[in-house]
Amino acid sequence: MLDRHNRVLQIIGVIVLALLILPLGIVVVTSFGTEATISFPIKGFTLAWYANIWTQPAFVSGFQSSLTIALLASLLALLIGVPAVYALTRFNIPKQGWFQTLFLSPTLIPEIVIGFALYQTLVISWRLPLWPSLLIGHLLLCLPYVIRLVTSSMLHLDPHIEEAAWTLGTSRPHAFFTIVLPNIRTSIVAAFMLCFINSFNNIPISLFLNGPSQNMLPTAILNYLQNNYDPTVSALSVLLMLFTAALMILMERLLGVGALTTTGTNA
């Protein structure tokens, strides 16, 4: 039987899990090494590489802008995405499918192409500064998550509840904020978290839209790796893993364990 005691399934499962975890474990170990280049196993123990992160201005400023852009892009995506979803699911909009396809269309364009096209249009043609261009790029990345997640929870919400409120004299905006919004809260939080994580981790879009004056953390690491092979990146990776872990705990607190595993599929 192919149950949990099946030898073959068990062996493959354990090996795959080990292969998923071990590489990250090796990175953690190398971050404590005393040698000037990354080595494994390590010869001595030091925390110096963690201190070294803060001496790299690209990492510090990159973290700040990645954080700001991710927060702003996620918020903006919600601000323009939720009203659009509301209109599409509650009003009788002609050509509804077209709008849905349009809003999800950024997922069909490879991210590297979005970055390149935005660089050409915003930075070269329109001479827009890098910072707003980055924000726009990350907004395009985030919007489809909002549309997808919020649409499915709007479709699950019984429209009669809202209609009951109107009949009782509540204005449409008031009904939206007091009845609809609390009911789709989970999908909004989930969309925000997914947007934030994907924007924070994004490389292909940021790659074209950053420069010496405007760093993003992932691309700063990429640049650093071109010329250096020391455990600073290992140390920074450990901090980023802790950051991921913190976000997962936050997601679990806000949405519950079940939500944590189902949102993973959409990532």
């Binding site: 992932p218 790796l225 980023l240 991921t244 997962m248 993973g264």
Partner: peptide, 9 residues
């Protein structure tokens, strides 16, 4: 966990 960890890492 790996899905949410940065691809560079």
């Amino acid at each position: 966990f790996p899905i949410l960890t940065n691809a560079v890492v």
